[in-house]
């Protein structure tokens, strides 16, 4: 069965397989949420409910944990997630101006996704690359010493590539 059909039927085999493979089921919720997000890109309500039933815990606990941690997304993100570092080192070297330039270039504000679903703008807290400040990450790729003038080049790099 295709993945969409399995999901429609309320079946998430990846989550089952991952949970079953854990040697220690104590404290499994966060690893399971990580896995679910890796597979589905975000944590839709149905997935959260499924995890609650699977782990035999209240759905409110799953929701509470999913919303507590900033790495978990409850909404679908764009194909390319532009994250500007707003850690201290990047801040004093002008990352706010870089963020503003991305917002201007893409026409959406921080935490928003472009209407074609290509880009989501966000911010991150320190990736530990302070020597390269200010730092921008697009998905897993790191750009260092970014100036507002570089923003258009970075966006152009991904335009025309299409989705992942």
């Amino acid at each position: 069965m295709a993945q969409e059909a399995l999901e429609a039927a309320g079946s998430y085999p990846e989550i089952d397989a991952f949970y079953d493979s854990l040697p220690d089921k104590n404290g499994a919720l966060i690893p399971v949420l990580h896995k679910a997000q890796e597979v589905y890109g975000y944590l839709p309500k149905d997935v959260q409910l499924y995890i609650a039933r699977k782990l035999e815990i209240p759905a409110s606990k799953v929701f509470g944990v999913a919303t507590f941690y900033s790495l978990f997304n409850l909404e679908k993100k764009g194909d390319y997630r532009v994250n500007v570092c707003l850690g201290t080192a990047c801040f004093v070297r002008g990352s706010e101006g870089v963020l503003a330039e991305f917002e201007k270039e893409l026409g959406v504000a921080r935490t928003e996704t472009t209407s074609d679903g290509t880009f989501t703008i966000g911010s991150i807290r320190c990736v530990g690359a302070c020597g390269l400040a200010p730092v921008v990450m697009v998905n897993d790729k790191v750009y260092g010493r970014v100036t507002p003038d570089d923003v258009k080049h970075i966006v152009d790099e991904y335009l025309g590539k299409g989705g992942e």
Partner: peptide, 19 residues
């Protein structure tokens, strides 16, 4: 999973317990 407060030791332990 991205929470600054988890650097605090009792928070960290709650996190390891899945909460």
């Amino acid at each position: 999973a991205g929470a600054f407060v988890c650097g605090e030791e009792t928070s960290l332990m709650n996190s390891v317990q899945g909460g």
